[in-house]
Design a protein around this nucleic acid. Structure first.
Lengths: 196, 196
DNA sequence: CTAACACCGGAATGGATCGTTCCGTTCCGC
DNA sequence: GCGGAACGGAACGATCCATTCCGGTGTTAG
């Protein structure tokens, strides 16, 4: 049997790979500067199991972040299917916030050097989000811009727990829809922490 | 002259004290785990100038946090004078958010052990905020509770810059006023990080 | 059945970081 | 001038952490 044997040791190794990724997400979301040993402990494996899969800490962080970015893009693509403009925007926002993708992509920034591919994906993600935003913009209060959305995502990332985040997304969406012109200037590039 | 000579040496020392506090606020708000040498550098003084004033790092953190707490209480007291219920609530919220008091009190939690006095002040602060909240509650969407306010403050703390924070307070206030019942349960004790 | 092997757990290592102490210097106030 | 408060910053010791290394273990091919 050359291909069918997904049993025994190989199975266990695959399980470990998944456990490591899950543990890493949990640990690094709670504290981006957590030691790598905390990830191993959380995953219930030894440190060497980790280093077997990733050359170093930075590579694991990169992987985590890139996964988040791809998830972001997937959510945007899924929401773009929705015909109703506001519903599409809401679906996108809820999807991204529920998965806590923003923490994955932004809070981990600076802990690693991004690859060219990631940079390209980041641009693509921004374009997709921009398209959804533009579709919904006529229904929003005046003065709201795409960078506001980024900052609102940042705010949501401060809330622990998917369910609780959903509670405040509701509040933010209502706040984004009603009301007059937003006061003050929108965030500028320096206030948004993107990758360089 | 026993009392009048606030010139020269003493003046400079007082200036340094202030510079240290300001620098500490800036540095520790940006990163609660920053080294104490960063504070000295930012303040333009040597490390010994710092240790002359505070027995250790923890004492400086405590001082910073307590100052924030007192500021919180002061803002609440000031807002309580306002006769209009919603205006009082808004004034309070804007005052607290503008001063970034929440970062001072919550993000620094865990970096020091609070004193009994601080704990008492924290209770007092919570009571005052609760009173303002109750006054405004009839004008809010159903389902909002005081713990929601705490979490909204937490969210605001994620926004850099006082002016930008004001922009989103406007949005949050509108979202807090309009709309239907908030979905899901409010934050529970574990999700709010208070001091023990 | 057994010999290689892939994988693993966790101790050991070497380097970086940081709180705190210490000492020589400066300069105000008399 | 002189005493001493206040200072700058080097030195020290402890802690933390990424990474490496080694001995053990279950699996699988033959």
């Amino acid at each position: 049997m050359t291909t069918s044997s997904t049993a025994g040791r190989a199975r266990q190794a695959a399980r470990n790979s998944e456990a490591i990724l899950t543990a890493a997400r949990e640990v690094f979301l709670a504290d981006p500067r957590a030691p790598i040993s905390a990830v191993a402990e959380r995953a219930g494996v030894g440190i060497s199991a980790l280093y077997r899969r990733y050359p170093g800490k930075e590579d694991l962080l990169r992987r985590l972040c890139h996964d988040g970015l791809l998830r972001f893009i997937a959510e945007a693509g899924r929401a773009a299917q929705e015909p109703d403009d506001w519903a599409a925007f809401e679906m996108f926002l809820r999807g991204v916030v529920e998965a806590d993708v923003h923490s994955l992509t932004v809070h981990l920034a600076g802990t690693f050097t991004p690859t060219a591919e990631m940079r390209a994906d980041a641009v693509r993600a921004n374009d997709l989000a921009g398209a959804l935003f533009e579709r919904a913009r006529p229904l929003m209060r005046p003065g709201a811009v795409l960078d506001d959305l980024t900052m609102l995502l940042e705010m949501c990332a401060a809330v622990p727990g998917a369910e609780l985040r959903g509670r405040y997304v509701t509040l933010l969406l209502d706040g984004l829809r009603g009301g007059g012109e937003l006061p003050g200037p929108p965030p500028n590039g320096a206030e948004l922490n993107r990758w360089r």
